[in-house]
């Protein structure tokens, strides 16, 4: 168990290192001079050259990389050209927005998909199952920008239940904050719901079809105990893994939904960084998103390990 954990951590670190390297090299290759961008087109060549020297852009690429990664390890993520602020500070400003939207939308998606998916599997081909299958299709098919505008128009503009755009920080009250992120969270949740219901429903159907359900019947277990203790127990693993992946994706910020709802999150920060060629900021964001993905999948794996003894004991998976 411990050995597995250490191995998992080491591989996570390796992934982070490789990603940081690839990001750096790729961004190095895009055309455009960072010093020129900072100073503008009117700057004299002397000034540009001086700034290049000051920014360390004349150093060989590996020295630049080592400088950057060394800084990151010391907690100095560099300074954004556009904002003139430390990248880490910028990320920390945007984090609460993206985090709260990501967590709320996953909460909505997980709860709804669990309820709908399980009931749909238990009552296969009933009207409820047909509803679940419809949501499954629609969730995957509806584009989020369209859904976002529709929700905005109806719930915010027509009904006035939620603010149309913008983010209210937690410091101004929990309710106000929740209302400001409710619509974007719902829009994102619907996108994730489609896949998640599908996974829950199909793993539940597989579990219900297993021989251990017969064993539960033979022992005379009441249906609810059989479903909760036997079927659900083996059906949760795949949905946990998938929702972990979805959460990791959402934590990296969602460009479209954040833009439409004017939420100052990681996604919009990234968009600005790309538009303005803010290489340092972009590097920082990519490294941050990768760290999020690695961290969340690590936690997901730990949860799955806790649920599945086969992994814990280092054996091949026993469940078919």
């Amino acid at each position: 168990m411990l050995k597995l954990l250490v191995r998992r951590l080491l591989s996570a670190l390796a992934v982070l290192f490789v990603v940081s390297f690839i990001t750096f090299v790729v961004l190095l290759c895009i055309p455009g001079d960072a010093a020129q961008l900072v100073l503008g087109v009117d700057a004299t060549p002397e000034k540009v050259a001086a700034l290049r020297e000051a920014m360390g852009l004349n150093e060989p690429w590996y020295i630049q990389y080592l400088d950057w990664i060394g800084g990151v390890l010391r907690g100095d993520w560099g300074t954004s050209y556009v904002y003139g602020e430390n990248v880490w500070t910028l990320l920390c400003q945007r984090l609460p927005v993206t985090f709260s939207v990501a967590l709320l939308s996953m909460l909505i998606a997980v709860v709804l998909s669990a309820v709908l998916g399980i009931l749909a599997a238990l009552k296969k081909d009933s009207p409820l199952d047909i509803l679940a299958r419809t949501v499954m299709q629609l969730g995957g098919a509806l584009p989020s920008f369209w859904l976002a505008m529709l929700f905005m128009l109806f719930f915010a503009s027509y009904l006035g239940w939620f603010p149309i755009t913008g983010y209210t920080p937690m410091s101004e009250g929990f309710g106000a904050c929740l209302r400001s992120i409710a619509l974007p969270s719902f829009v994102l949740a619907i996108g994730e719901l489609g896949i998640l219901i599908r996974i829950v429903r199909s793993s539940m159907l597989t579990a219900l079809d297993q021989d251990f359900m017969l064993s539960a019947r033979v022992k005379g277990l009441p249906p609810r105990a059989a479903i909760v203790r036997y079927a659900l127990r083996s059906a949760v693993i795949a949905p946990i893994t998938i929702s972990g992946m979805q959460l990791a994706k959402l934590l990296g910020g969602t460009v479209i939904v954040e833009t439409i709802f004017a939420l100052p999150g990681i996604g919009r920060l990234m968009l600005t960084a790309v538009e303005q060629r803010d290489i340092t900021l972009l590097q920082g964001i990519v490294l941050f998103i990768t760290s999020m993905v690695v961290l969340v999948s690590l936690v997901t794996d730990l949860i799955v390990m806790a649920v599945n003894p086969a992994i814990r004991t280092g054996e091949e998976a026993v469940s078919r």
């Binding site: 203790r229 026993v318 469940s319």
Partner: peptide, 24 residues
């Protein structure tokens, strides 16, 4: 049963599977 692989739940300890029905 005939099938010994899936008749016992793979994620539940033997002692619990032996006793849960009895305790009911």
């Amino acid at each position: 049963p005939q099938n010994t692989v899936a008749y016992l739940h793979p994620l539940i300890k033997v002692k619990r599977q032996l006793t849960d029905g009895y305790l009911c």
